[in-house]
Structures are given as structure tokens and as C-alpha cells.
Amino acid sequence: MDRGGVETLLMNIYRKIDRDSIQFDFLTHPYSQDYSYEYESEILSMGGRIYKAPSFSHNPCGYRKYIKVFFQNHPEYSVVHAHNLDSASLVYMREAKKTGRYLIAHSHNTEDHGKIIKRIMLRGCHHIIRQYPDYFYACSLPAAKFAFGKRIAESSSCQIFHNGIDVDQYFVDNALHLEMRNRLFPDARGPVFGTVGRLLPQKNQSFLLDVFADILKRDSLSELAIVGKGELRPSLEAKAKDLGIERHVHFIGSVPNVPDYLKAFDVFLLPSLYEGLPLVSIEAQASGLPTVVSNGVPPMAKCSDLIRFVDLSEGTSGWADAALEAYQKGRDQRADRIEQVRAAGFDISEISKRLCEFYKNHEDMI
């Protein structure tokens, strides 16, 4: 339960549900059993429990044993909502069904990450696990077809589940934008471009650095803020230095106040190679932020007049053009798009209410 897209979606829902009626507990299998992940203290404060199984990839036998005993010892869990569809799902989904749980599988992506052999293995897992769930959710139709296949994706057993946000957190006007910008980037004298996401190959931050180097050639006062943590940080820092742009690039790390950064940015950039439906693209639009994304982001992410899709084939020059155009167009005109985002169906309050009704209806069927 670190601060990432899926985890943030789960926490957004968890904060909004009636916890006197429904409680979320979390079964995880982290690499480190002792490390306290970023959302854990909040989960515990809201009455949730966190179970940590051994890492499946590091200890598959220990993981199988743990999962078998877990479902035997915890009959109180009537609904299992599965957000992890990797090889571990071959174990926990089978045990969940053997012990009579109502099982929901939830797809959040349109590609698997990792090297080609790992991706081939994961595609095989997706085919096998389709036999277990009673119901299927996905953040977009491409994500549903990717994980579950066309037949299931277009069936009555599958539903598109919007990645909702707490829209009221994203109120902003031009005065608040300037206040947050001055607070978070007090030395900035030019446009502040920003991105939010784990530092992983999928998010394509290496390409973003090349884009920003091109931006700096045209506007030498520009700044780039990269919010998030991940395995690529050392190589990205080294690349920024090699490009000679390190004084203008800020690696912020993982932060609890992402809305503040979105309010402070002048333009949001997301050149992902692939996405299911990136929550942060919805958050950026809600906060009135001119948003430039790749065609790896599905069209349903468009929920306001602020977003522009730019193909990665347009290269660094095309992306630099789009970023600077977005800055000039939105300059001194900051206003949130909360009502547009709400009308598009991304209000977490409504989404959480519908999900809890679904849980209750299907709990009665067990």
C-alpha cells in the first residue's frame, strides 16, 4: 500500500465508504515484511487491517501456504476484490473460490510491465485466472479486453469502473495557483512543467527529460518537477546531468499533498507508453491544469477542455511545441474543472456509493 495509482484509488474509495456498514481490509504480498508503506498508518487509523503474505516472486511456496491458511482462518471475508492480476493471482483467486468467496477481478492496465519473458508468462496467467472471478471490473474497455478477453469484456459480467477522485480537493483559481506555485517553487521565474507517477519504464520519464531539454532551448527559465518515487530515479538523475539540465529538474519524491503540486504546476505532462486510466490525468484536469498526454492514455481520460493527446511519434520537438503552447494558452487563466470532471462520472463519492451497494447485493448471494 504505497502511494501509487491503484493504491490511491483504493484509498479514495475507502475514505468515502460508510465504514460502520462495510470495512476494507488489505491482503498484500510486499517484498519487505517489516517496511511500513505510505498508506498503512491511515488504513489502521480507519479500522482497517493489513495482512502481509510472503512475496510470491521471492517465496512462492511460503506464499501458497500463507494464502491457504489465510482463507481457512478468515471466513468473515465474503467478498474478495482482486486488484493484482499477476502470477500470485493463480494462488489467491483459486483459494478464494475454493472457500466460497464472491470474487471480483479488477483490471487497471492495458499492458504488463517487465521483460518479454515475464510479459508472456503474465499473459498466460490472465487466460487461466478468467475462470475464477464471479464478476469483472476494468478502468477502461481496452483494460478489460487486455486482462479478460473480448468475450468477457463485452459481457454482462463486466463493468467499466471509473477511477474516481475527491473532486472537492481540486478547487483552484488564479490567486491560489500563484500562492501554491510560490510556496512550492519559490525560485521559479518561468513556466513550471510537472508530472506525477512512479518512476518506471511505463511512465516514460526518460523521454520526458529529452522533451524538457528541448523546452529549455526555447525558454531557458523553465522548470520541470517530477513527483513520485521508483527504481529509475538514479538513472533519471544521471540522464538529467548528462543533458546538462539538472539545475532545472526537481525530483520531488513521493508526497502526501499531490493536489497542492497540481495546483502549483503550469502544465502537466504524461508521456506514458501505456495506461489503463491514469488517475492523475483526471486530477490534473480537475485542478484546472493544462494537460498534455500520450496516445497511450485512453480517450476516456478526456473529461474537460484542458487535455490534449500527442502521439509519441511526434518526438521531443512535437511534445515541446505542445507543452509551450499549453502554457501560453492557459497563462493567467487558472480555474478548476471540478464540475466537468464530476459530470464525466469521476466523482469518488458517487462511485463509492455504487460499489458498496454492489458489495452488499452480492454478499447476500453467498
Score class of each variant (00 low, 15 high):
residue 61 C to L: 13
residue 28 T to Q: 05
residue 46 M to D: 09
residue 11 M to C: 02
residue 42 E to K: 05
residue 15 R to Q: 03
residue 12 N to K: 00
residue 20 D to V: 01
residue 27 L to D: 04
residue 43 I to D: 11
residue 62 G to C: 11
residue 27 L to C: 07
residue 44 L to W: 10
residue 56 F to K: 05
residue 40 E to T: 06
residue 16 K to M: 03
residue 64 R to K: 14
residue 58 H to W: 06
residue 26 F to P: 08
residue 46 M to K: 07
residue 29 H to L: 02
residue 46 M to T: 08
residue 6 V to T: 10
residue 37 Y to L: 12
residue 43 I to S: 10
residue 28 T to I: 08
residue 11 M to R: 01
residue 16 K to T: 00
residue 52 K to S: 13
residue 56 F to P: 05
residue 16 K to E: 13
residue 53 A to T: 10
residue 14 Y to P: 03
residue 37 Y to N: 01
residue 24 F to G: 08
residue 39 Y to C: 11
residue 34 D to C: 10
residue 19 R to H: 12
residue 57 S to L: 12
residue 12 N to E: 04
residue 38 E to L: 08
residue 50 I to N: 10
residue 64 R to P: 00
residue 62 G to K: 07
residue 43 I to F: 11
residue 47 G to H: 02
residue 36 S to E: 15
residue 21 S to Y: 01
residue 21 S to G: 02
residue 17 I to R: 05
residue 27 L to S: 08
residue 43 I to G: 06
residue 9 L to F: 09
residue 35 Y to L: 15
residue 57 S to W: 07
residue 60 P to N: 11
residue 47 G to V: 08
residue 49 R to C: 09
residue 48 G to D: 14
residue 6 V to N: 00
residue 11 M to S: 01
residue 44 L to I: 13
residue 48 G to K: 10
residue 44 L to C: 10
residue 52 K to M: 11
residue 63 Y to D: 05
residue 13 I to R: 01
residue 28 T to S: 14
residue 44 L to G: 01
residue 49 R to D: 07
residue 46 M to P: 06
residue 24 F to A: 09
residue 19 R to S: 09
residue 9 L to I: 03
residue 16 K to D: 02
residue 9 L to K: 00
residue 64 R to V: 03
residue 57 S to Q: 09
residue 20 D to F: 00
residue 38 E to R: 13
residue 20 D to H: 06
residue 13 I to P: 02
residue 30 P to G: 04
residue 8 T to P: 03
residue 27 L to A: 14
residue 26 F to A: 10
residue 15 R to C: 00
residue 35 Y to P: 09
residue 64 R to M: 14
residue 30 P to W: 04
residue 11 M to W: 02
residue 32 S to D: 15
residue 21 S to P: 00
residue 45 S to R: 08
residue 52 K to W: 12
residue 35 Y to K: 15
residue 22 I to Y: 09
residue 19 R to T: 12
residue 61 C to P: 00
residue 22 I to E: 05
residue 63 Y to M: 06
residue 10 L to M: 08
residue 21 S to V: 13
residue 62 G to E: 13
residue 24 F to C: 10
residue 9 L to M: 09
residue 61 C to H: 08
residue 47 G to Q: 09
residue 48 G to S: 12
residue 60 P to Y: 04
residue 32 S to I: 03
residue 7 E to Q: 13
residue 35 Y to I: 15
residue 19 R to F: 05
residue 9 L to A: 01
residue 51 Y to H: 06
residue 9 L to W: 11
residue 39 Y to L: 07
residue 10 L to K: 00
residue 5 G to M: 01
residue 41 S to G: 06
residue 31 Y to F: 14
residue 21 S to F: 04
residue 27 L to V: 11
residue 18 D to G: 05
residue 32 S to A: 12
residue 43 I to R: 05
residue 25 D to P: 14
residue 12 N to Q: 05
residue 52 K to E: 12
residue 5 G to N: 04
residue 24 F to D: 11
residue 12 N to P: 04
residue 14 Y to R: 06
residue 19 R to A: 06
residue 29 H to A: 13
residue 64 R to D: 03
residue 48 G to V: 10
residue 31 Y to A: 11
residue 52 K to H: 12
residue 55 S to Q: 07
residue 7 E to L: 01
